[in-house]
Measured scan of single mutants.
Amino acid sequence: VTTYKLVINGKTLKGETTTKAVDAETAEKAFKQYANDNGVDGVWTYDDATKTFTVTE
């Protein structure tokens, strides 16, 4: 299990959150659900070296 980070650069929501997941794909699903629940819809990137997803509106 690895800790992944999400950086949110939204129009109305900015911040960070983390999740523990077995792989990046599982973390991405959780983060996309989180973003959707919070009304954030943007461009996604992922940096494997830092295990960090970024979504920018």
Rank of each mutant, 00 (worst) to 15 (best):
A35S: 07
E16M: 04
D48S: 12
T52Y: 03
K29Y: 15
T50C: 04
I8L: 09
E16R: 04
K5N: 07
T17K: 15
I8E: 01
D23W: 04
N36M: 13
F53E: 00
N38G: 05
T17A: 15
Y4Q: 00
N38A: 14
T54C: 04
D41E: 13
L6T: 01
T2Y: 12
Q33K: 10
K5M: 07
F53D: 00
E28Y: 14
E25N: 12
F31R: 00
Y34E: 03
V40L: 10
A49H: 15
K29F: 11
V40R: 02
A27G: 02
E16A: 04
K32C: 04
F53H: 02
L13I: 10
K32G: 03
T18G: 04
W44I: 03
K51W: 07
T3L: 14
G10N: 10
T19M: 14
K11I: 15
E57A: 06
V40E: 02
G39E: 12
G39S: 10
K14A: 10
N38L: 08
A35H: 01
T12M: 11
E16H: 07
G39H: 14
K51Y: 13
K20M: 07
D23P: 01
T3H: 05
T26D: 14
T45M: 10
W44T: 01
K11P: 14
V7W: 15
A21Y: 05
T19R: 07
K20W: 15
K32L: 14
A49M: 13
D41K: 09
L13R: 02
T50F: 12
K29D: 11
T50N: 08
V43R: 11
W44K: 00
I8R: 01
T56Y: 06
K32R: 12
V55P: 00
D23S: 15
D23Q: 04
E16K: 04
V22L: 09
E28I: 11
K14D: 13
T52A: 03
K32T: 08
V7I: 09
V43T: 13
D47T: 05
V55Y: 02
A27W: 01
L6S: 01
T45F: 07
T3C: 06
D47M: 05
T26A: 14
K14Y: 07
T50E: 14
K11N: 11
A21T: 05
V55L: 13
G15L: 12
G42W: 04
V40N: 03
A49N: 09
V40S: 03
K20F: 11
T52P: 00
K32F: 10
T18V: 10
T26E: 12
T52R: 04
K14V: 14
T18R: 14
D37N: 12
T45N: 09
V40P: 02
K14Q: 15
F53L: 02
D37E: 08
D41C: 05
K32S: 05
V43H: 10
V7D: 03
Q33D: 10
T2P: 13
Y4M: 01
N9H: 08
T19K: 07
K11F: 13
W44A: 01
E57R: 03
K51R: 13
T12P: 06
T19A: 12
D23M: 06
V7P: 00
A27P: 01
Y4T: 00
I8N: 02
T52C: 05
E28K: 12
D23I: 03
N36G: 14
T2H: 08
T56P: 01
T56G: 03
K29L: 08
V7L: 09
T52L: 05
G10R: 04
K29W: 13
T26W: 08
Q33L: 09
F53Y: 13
A21W: 03
D23V: 04
D37R: 11
D41V: 07
K51F: 09
K14I: 11
T18K: 10
E16C: 04
K5E: 03
K51A: 09
D48C: 04
A27C: 02
T56D: 10
T3F: 10
K5V: 12
T54S: 05
N38P: 01
V1N: 14
D48M: 08
K29I: 11
T52V: 07
T50S: 12
